[in-house]
C-alpha cells in the first residue's frame, strides 16, 4: 500500500515515516504543496496524508487542487488546527478524515485502514468476542457456524456493531427499530437487549448497559 505524506516539518515527517514504514506501508514524502502536485501527477497513491500548514500554499488550497484532478483517493488531513470550524472547513474542502496533532499512532493507523476499506468497497468484518459480523452480507458467524437471531435482535445488534465502542441511546435504537405502524417502546428495547445479551454471552460478547442512557458493545 502506497502513501503520500505531505508534511513540511521534518520532525513529524521522519517519525511518521519510521513508524508507518515499520507497519509495512510504502511512503513517499514531500514537504510542500508544489511537490505534492507533481508527485500526484506522476504516481498513483492509495492514500494521501496532508498537513495543512505548508510553506508554499495553504493545505486546504492544495486539497482542492488534488480533488480537481483525482476524485477518489482518500485524503487524511493531519493538522494542529483543531477548532471545530477548521475541522468542518477541512472536511468540506474534500478531506476523507481529519486527525489533529498530537495523535495516537494506533488511531492514525486504524483510520488509514478504515479509509482503505471504504475506498476498496470491500466487505467490512467487525469482530467482537469470538464473533464476526459481515456488514455487507449482514451475517453473524463463529468460524463457519452462522449464529441465528430474531429479526429485532438482528437489527438491534447491527446498530450496536455499526457503533462499536460507542454509546447507542435507547431513543436511537427505538427510532431505528420502529416502523410507521409498529412503534418499539423503551421496555421492548430492554427485553430485546436482555435476550440478545443472553444469546451472545457464550461467544464472549458483552452488551453493556449505561444506566439511563443506552447500550454499548466493546470490541
Amino acid at each position: 500500500m502506497k502513501l503520500l505524506l505531505v508534511e513540511d516539518d521534518p520532525l513529524v515527517a521522519n517519525s511518521l515515516m519510521l513508524a508507518l514504514g515499520g507497519s509495512g506501508y510504502a511512503i513517499d514524502h514531500v514537504s510542500d504543496g508544489g511537490q505534492a502536485q507533481i508527485s500526484i501527477a506522476t504516481e498513483t497513491y492509495d492514500l494521501i496524508i496532508l498537513d495543512l500548514g505548508l510553506p508554499d500554499m495553504d493545505g486546504l488550497e492544495c486539497l482542492r487542487t488534488i480533488r480537481k484532478r483525482i476524485i477518489k483517493v482518500p485524503v487524511l488531513i493531519l493538522t494542529a488546527r483543531d477548532a471545530p470550524k477548521e475541522r468542518i472547513e477541512g472536511l468540506d474542502a474534500g478531506a476523507s478524515d481529519y486527525v489533529t496533532k498530537p495523535f495516537h499512532l494506533g488511531e492514525l493507523e486504524a483510520r488509514i485502514r478504515a479509509l482503505q476499506r471504504l475506498a476498496l468497497g470491500c466487505d467490512i468484518v467487525v469482530e467482537t468476542g469470538e464473533l464476526k459480523w459481515n456488514t455487507k452480507t449482514r451475517t453473524l458467524c463463529r468460524g463457519d457456524e452462522v449464529v441465528e437471531l430474531s429479526a429485532k435482535e438482528h437489527a438491534c445488534l447491527e446498530v450496536l456493531l455499526q457503533n462499536l465502542n460507542t454509546l447507542v441511546t435507547k431513543q436511537r435504537l427505538s427510532s431505528i427499530l420502529s416502523g410507521d405502524d409498529a412503534p418499539v417502546s423503551f421496555n421492548a428495547i430492554d427485553i430485546i437487549i436482555h435476550r440478545l445479551r443472553k444469546r451472545l454471552e457464550p461467544y464472549g460478547v458483552r452488551v453493556q448497559t449505561v444506566r439511563g442512557l443506552g447500550f454499548r458493545v466493546e470490541q
Binding site: A19, G22, A80, L105, G106
Partner: peptide, 13 residues
C-alpha cells in the same frame, strides 16, 4: 504540538 506529535509517534512506535 509539532514536537509533541513527533515524541508521541516515536514513543508509540
Amino acid at each position: 504540538r509539532t514536537p509533541v506529535t513527533a515524541v508521541k509517534i516515536y514513543t508509540d512506535h
